[in-house]
């Protein structure tokens, strides 16, 4: 199995397009996942009986195979990018929901009482006290969800999308390993870079956690 370096040189434009398309699918999924799981997590955190239900439901969604999710969505959204993003979003929900609930749980009761005693209204306390303090745990979830999504995008190649995953189908059909190797390496790099960027974002967003170091 040898790498045809000239193929890579001839296809830099395609590779750039696929990489960006790949990244766009994964990041949209994480973004939508956050938009859905943040309010749900607040509800699950406040209303105990709903907590088990919501977390259990997201766990069941996780047991459905990714290829099956994409395929099950075909009657709804067809062979489109929308299907890819919906499928990936469903997968991010498990991690994001669980971590956000755990993050909110980890906020010390005394801090919340102090905010209340100072006359902070509930919504303001949530936005300016609880969510910031829950951020490290939420960010841990965002990192896992991002890396997972980046790896999963390629599954959508079966429904005609899939970003860098298209390189796998291409290499498979032509019995030509170079695009496959390039696809795997680029996916790993993308995950690595995205993860490092998220660590940096968390560092910037949570200055109070730095003093310990």
């Amino acid at each position: 199995m040898t790498i045809d370096w000239s193929w890579i040189g001839d296809h830099t434009d395609d590779l750039t397009t696929l990489t960006f398309s790949h990244l766009q699918a994964a990041l949209s999924a994480v973004l939508f996942g956050l938009l859905i799981s943040l309010p749900l997590a607040v509800v699950a955190h406040r209303i105990r009986p709903l907590r088990g239900l919501l977390l259990g439901l997201s766990n069941v969604l996780f047991t459905i195979p990714s290829i099956a999710v994409f395929v099950l969505l075909l009657p709804v959204s067809g062979l489109t990018r929308t299907t890819t993003v919906i499928g990936l979003t469903i997968y991010t929900l498990v991690v994001l929901l669980r971590n956000t609930v755990e993050g909110l749980d980890s906020v010390p009761a005394k801090t919340k009482e102090a905010a209340k005693a100072m006359g902070t209204r509930p919504l303001r306390a949530l936005l300016t006290v609880e969510l910031p303090l829950a951020l490290p745990v939420i960010m841990a979830g965002v990192r896992i969800a991002t890396v997972m999504s980046i790896s999963l995008v390629s599954v959508a190649t079966y429904i005609g999308d899939g970003g860098l995953g298209q390189l796998f189908t291409d290499g498979f059909q032509r019995n030509f390993p170079t695009p496959v190797i390039v696809g795997v390496v680029l996916t790993l790099l993308l995950a690595l870079v995205a993860d490092a960027l998220l660590v940096a974002v968390q560092y910037v967003l949570t200055p109070w956690t730095r003093r310990r170091a």
């Binding site: 199995m1 896992i144 890396v147 997972m148 980046i150 790896s151 999963l152 390629s154 599954v155 190649t157 860098l164 995953g165 390189l167 796998f168 189908t169 290499g171 498979f172 019995n175 030509f176 390993p177 496959v180 190797i181 696809g183 795997v184 996916t187 790993l188 995950a191 690595l192 993860d195």
Partner: peptide
């Protein structure tokens, strides 16, 4: 664990298949 999550299974299957 992090590496395992990032490794695209489809790519791995095709790669080992071609090899």
């Amino acid at each position: 664990a992090s590496f395992g999550r990032a490794l695209p299974t489809v790519g791995l299957v095709v790669l080992v298949f071609l090899a």
